[in-house]
Design a protein around this nucleic acid. Structure first.
Length: 370
DNA sequence: ATGTAC
């Protein structure tokens, strides 16, 4: 389909590179998925990270270099990523109960005029603003965090930050669904479907980054603070790299040498100073990685009232707002691997170092009951 | 992942 890949795609590196140590638990099925995708037509190389876990169309926590486009290796949430912002709010001025009440603004849709204006300023005029500024479901969140250690010039111990994990909402899902029937062997970049996908994909990537910024702006406004962007690293996207098409699925593309590494809502998060090279397909872990899938979590959590109430507090004394009972269970801290293990592996392979450590104070999922 | 599909 495409031209054979040369350079970094050739024998210089292993076809399947794994950047995790034996100390890190990896579900066997995700390694099977990794090997399976590595055998698809036109796949030159794959790199897997310590947050690897099984996904619907292939493993999550991996990057794939191909001579063609495979939309299923990006998935429906095109452009999804993690963005970190510093808040101009002293820790002593954050009152959790009041913040919980005010952050319910995140559940409301943005006024249509404001959404349109933001889209126009981001060169996305004419694209639907439905869902812009809202978090969505699944593993997405907007979290107030406190810096507990920092070597980064933009952060100091005691600073408050927002970590936003969200994507392109219905926009990416719609693009994915429309092209779903035509994937099997991927698209050549110069085919009509390939060109269509790339154009729609690129706008969804920009829409998703704008969405994270709008979520952070709305949260900062609710908290009465100003916002300073630290970095925004997408982890579901395809870009030109390494002489081919680099697909990332739950694999972070660092921005200017930095990327957030999100722990669960009951764990630390890190700001990584990152220099992953060709061997790691220029990518990093995006988070802790799931240990148990959603359905398994329903069997693992005792669902009496006091147990569920306890799940709205984290080990740092912080609070979780998630009125959707199923989501509260499915996204429990115990559903994820320890993020420190993931960071240690990335450091062991020289892909990144921890430049800041952050603890969650308030995780906003949804205030709406289901 | 999803203004969630029947």
């Amino acid at each position: 389909m495409g031209t054979p890949l040369s350079g970094v795609a050739a024998e210089q590196y292993p076809r399947v590179a794994r950047f995790y140590t034996p100390e890190t638990w990896i579900e066997g099925r995700s390694e099977d998925q990794l090997d399976h995708v590595a055998g698809w037509p036109g796949i030159a190389r794959v790199a897997a990270f310590p947050d690897l876990h099984p996904g619907r169309h292939g493993p999550v926590g991996a990057a794939f270099l191909a001579d063609r486009l495979y939309p299923q290796l990006v998935g429906p949430d095109i452009g999804c990523g993690m963005a970190l912002f510093r808040l101009s709010l002293p820790r002593r001025r954050l009152k959790l109960d009041k913040a919980v009440r005010r952050l319910s603004a995140l559940d409301e849709p943005m006024p249509a005029g404001a959404a349109e204006e933001a889209l126009g300023a981001a060169d996305l005029a004419g694209i639907s603003g439905t869902g812009l500024g809202t978090i969505g479901g699944g593993n997405h969140f907007c979290e107030v965090q406190e810096v507990v250690a920092a070597e980064d010039a933009d952060l100091a111990t005691g600073d408050l930050c927002l970590l936003v994990h969200s994507g392109s909402r219905a926009l990416g899902a719609g693009i994915f669904a429309r092209l779903a029937a035509r994937w099997a062997e991927g698209f050549a970049e110069d085919s009509p479907a390939g060109r269509d996908y790339l154009e729609l994909h690129d706008s969804a990537v920009r829409w998703a980054a704008l969405n994270r910024r709008m979520i952070a702006l709305r949260a900062a406004e609710a908290l009465g603070a100003d916002l300073e962007p630290i970095c925004d690293a997408p982890h579901n996207l395809v870009t030109r790299a390494g002489g081919g098409w680099l697909h990332r699925k739950g694999a972070a593309a660092p921005e200017a040498g930095r990327a957030p590494l999100a722990g669960s809502r009951d764990d630390l998060s890190f700001l990584l100073a990152a220099a992953p090279g060709a061997e790691a397909l220029w990518s990093l872990s995006h988070g802790a990685g799931r240990r148990y899938d959603r359905s398994a979590m329903h069997g693992r959590i005792r669902k009496h009232r006091s147990g569920l109430d306890a799940m709205t507090r984290n080990r740092f004394g912080g609070q979780i707002v998630c009125a959707d009972r199923d989501l509260l269970i499915e996204e429990a801290g115990s559903a994820y691997k320890p993020v420190t293990r993931v960071a240690e592996d990335l450091e062991a392979f020289g892909l990144a170092r921890r430049a800041a450590t952050l603890a969650p104070l308030l995780t906003w999922k949804t205030g709406a009951r289901r």
